[in-house]
C-alpha cells in the first residue's frame, strides 16, 4: 500500500509535515495560544508579567476555575450544568449566614454547610437527570432559577456581611505568598486531573460520554456516573460559594449571575467536546487562564469592557472551529 504511494502522491512528505504541525497544534494548541497571548500582553503592557499581577490573574480566575472543573465533568458525559452560578450564590449565602462575626460558630460549621448546600442542589440535578431522564439542559435551567429563588428566600434579598476573619481568610488570605483561593483552585485541579486520568471513575466518565449505550451494555452503571458528575459540579459550586463570599467579604444574593457562561466558555475553549467523551482537564485549566488573562490584559490596557466581551466570544467560536477542523482531519 505504501509502495505505490510515492508516484501517485508526490506531495506526501509536504502534507505529512503539515499534518504533524496541525497535529501538534490541536494537541497543544491551547497552550501555544495561551503563551502567544501572554507574550503579546507582556510586550504591550509592562505590568503584565509582574509577580503581583500574575497572582492577581490567578486569584481572579480561581472561582471560575473551580466552577469550570465541575462543568468539565458534566460536559464530558454529554451533559451541561447551567445552574452553577445560582448554586454558588446559594452556597455562599448559607455559608455566610453561619460565618458572621457574632454568630460564634466554629469555622467548620459554615464550611461544611456551604459545601453541603452546593452538594445537595447538585444531587437534585443528578437524580433528576440520571434517574428521571430529564434532559440536562432543562433540569439545570430549572435549577438556575430554583437555586436563585432559594437564595433570595434564604436571604430575604439582603446581603450578609460582617463575616469572621477566619472565614475571610479563604478568599483573602495568603500562604507562603500565594493567595488561598489560588491554592484551593490548584488543589481542585490536581484532584480532578488525577481522577480523570488515573481512576476507574474517570474512565467511566469518558466511556459514558463517548457512548452511553455501549457503556451500559459493557456493565457500567451509567446512571450512577451521571448522577455523580452533577453532584461533583454541585459540590464545587459549594466551594466556589465559600470562595466568593470570602473574597467579596459578603454573600450577595445576586452574586454569580451568568457565571455559567464563563465556565462553559472555559471548558469549550479548552477543547472539551460538547458532544461528550472527549476533552482534558488541562485544556479547561488553560481555557480558564485564557479568559482571565484577556480580562486582565484588557483592563491593564484600559480597553473598554465592551471589547472584552467581543474578544471572549470570538475566542470561543475560534476554539470550536479549530476543534471541528481537527475532527474532520481524522
Amino acid at each position: 500500500m505504501n509502495q505505490a504511494s510515492s508516484s501517485a502522491t508526490p506531495t506526501t512528505s509536504a502534507t505529512d509535515h503539515r499534518n504533524r504541525i496541525t497535529g501538534f497544534l490541536s494537541d497543544y494548541g491551547i497552550i501555544v495560544a495561551f503563551i502567544v497571548l501572554c507574550v503579546i500582553l507582556s510586550v504591550v503592557s509592562p505590568y503584565f508579567l509582574g509577580v503581583n499581577n500574575l497572582l492577581n490573574v490567578l486569584r481572579q480566575v480561581s472561582i471560575n476555575g473551580v466552577l469550570a472543573i465541575g462543568m468539565t465533568f458534566v460536559i464530558l458525559t454529554r451533559g451541561i450544568d447551567l445552574s452553577v452560578g445560582s448554586m454558588m450564590a446559594f452556597a455562599a449565602m448559607v455559608a455566610a449566614s453561619f460565618a458572621v462575626v457574632d454568630s460564634g460558630m466554629p469555622l467548620i460549621v459554615p464550611l461544611t454547610l456551604g459545601l453541603a448546600a452546593g452538594l445537595a442542589l447538585g444531587c437534585v440535578n443528578g437524580v433528576m437527570v440520571a434517574r428521571f431522564a430529564i434532559p440536562p439542559f432543562v433540569m439545570t435551567l430549572g435549577m438556575l432559577s430554583m437555586a436563585r429563588g432559594l437564595t433570595y428566600i434564604y436571604s430575604d434579598g439582603m446581603p450578609i456581611s460582617s463575616l469572621s476573619p477566619s472565614f475571610l481568610w479563604l478568599g483573602q488570605g495568603m500562604v507562603v505568598g500565594i493567595p488561598v483561593p489560588v491554592i484551593l483552585f490548584a488543589a481542585v485541579f490536581m484532584l480532578a486531573w488525577f481522577t480523570l486520568r488515573y481512576t476507574t471513575f474517570g474512565r467511566y466518565v469518558y466511556a459514558v460520554g463517548g457512548n452511553p449505550t455501549a457503556a451500559r451494555l459493557s456493565g457500567i452503571k451509567v446512571s450512577r456516573i451521571t448522577f455523580s458528575v452533577y453532584a461533583i459540579s454541585g459540590l464545587l459550586c459549594g466551594l466556589a460559594g465559600l470562595m466568593i463570599a470570602a473574597r467579596t467579604s459578603a454573600a450577595l444574593p445576586q452574586a454569580g449571575v451568568a457565571y455559567e457562561l464563563d465556565a462553559i466558555a472555559a471548558v469549550v475553549i479548552g477543547g472539551t467536546s460538547l458532544a461528550g467523551g472527549k476533552g482534558r482537564i488541562v485544556g479547561t485549566l488553560f481555557g480558564v487562564l485564557i479568559i482571565g488573562v484577556i480580562n486582565n490584559g484588557l483592563d491593564l490596557l484600559g480597553v473598554s469592557s465592551f471589547y472584552q466581551q467581543l474578544v471572549k466570544g470570538a475566542i470561543i467560536v475560534v476554539a470550536v472551529m479549530l476543534d471541528r477542523s481537527r475532527l474532520s482531519n481524522t
Binding site: N52, Q254, S305
Partner: peptide, 22 residues
C-alpha cells in the same frame, strides 16, 4: 480610568486589582 463594573462588588474588585497593577 473610567469603566463600568455593573454595580457589582466582585467585578469592581477584579477591575481595581488590575488598575492597581497598571
Amino acid at each position: 480610568e473610567r469603566r463600568t463594573a455593573n454595580w457589582s462588588r466582585a467585578e469592581a474588585l477584579s477591575l481595581m486589582e488590575n488598575w492597581l497593577t497598571a
